[in-house]
């Protein structure tokens, strides 16, 4: 049986999609038995997926300069990119900030919050810069498959991965295709 490597990253999301991935529970073991192995992922210590990784799963939208680089890196290194969850697919909740300027958003937290002791917006070179607008993943790279939902049902993630592992084209239908 040929192994299929899976890399996952989270960008501007809440990790709920990764949790739904783990909510496959015992079925996760089933996928591992069918040949899925983890490459780079928040769940492992591998930090960059090697070139030729079979499946790259992206949770979350793109909201910082670093995330923009990260999704491009995933595209370069993974054969199939799957956008998982409403944030990655459409932009989702994080795009609620798009109606404000980045400076207004930062200002509320770092200049005007009631509990602040000293007020200034962090800007050291070691932290990422916020993009003016949050965007879905496919505004930055080409996405091969989409699993919508907030988060998608574990069964939808299972079905998609199973089909890809078996070399078929995944398609979500009925209850598995949900935007909730």
């Amino acid at each position: 049986m040929k192994k299929k490597t899976v890399a996952t990253i989270w960008c501007e999301g809440c990790s709920g999609c990764h949790m739904s991935f783990l909510d496959m529970d015992e079925k996760l073991l089933d996928l591992i038995k069918k040949g899925m192995t983890f490459s780079a992922s928040p769940l492992t210590d591998l930090k960059i997926p090697p070139h030729g990784t079979d499946i790259g799963i992206i949770e979350g939208s793109v909201a910082t300069d670093t995330q923009e680089e990260e999704v491009k890196m995933m595209r370069e290194r993974c054969k199939i990119i799957v956008a998982i969850g409403n944030c990655a697919v459409f932009g989702g909740i994080p795009t609620m900030r798009n109606k404000y300027k980045v400076s207004e958003i930062l200002s509320r937290a770092y200049e005007n919050a009631e509990t602040n002791y000293n007020s200034h917006i962090p800007s050291a070179e070691d932290i990422s810069k916020l993009l003016e607008k949050v965007k879905p993943v496919d505004k930055v790279i080409k996405v091969d498959y989409y699993i919508p939902g907030c988060p998608p049902k574990p069964e939808a993630i299972y079905e998609t991965l199973l089909k890809i592992i078996e070399g078929e084209k995944p398609e979500l239908k009925g209850k598995l295709l949900s935007y909730d």
Partner: peptide, 24 residues
């Protein structure tokens, strides 16, 4: 390394929506 700005973009929403929005 990240900041999402919930405390700003929740302004203007009703407090009954806060649990649904902040769950995310």
């Amino acid at each position: 390394d990240q900041f999402r700005g919930f405390e700003k973009f929740i302004e203007g929403r009703y407090f009954e929506e806060a649990p649904i929005i902040t769950a995310k």
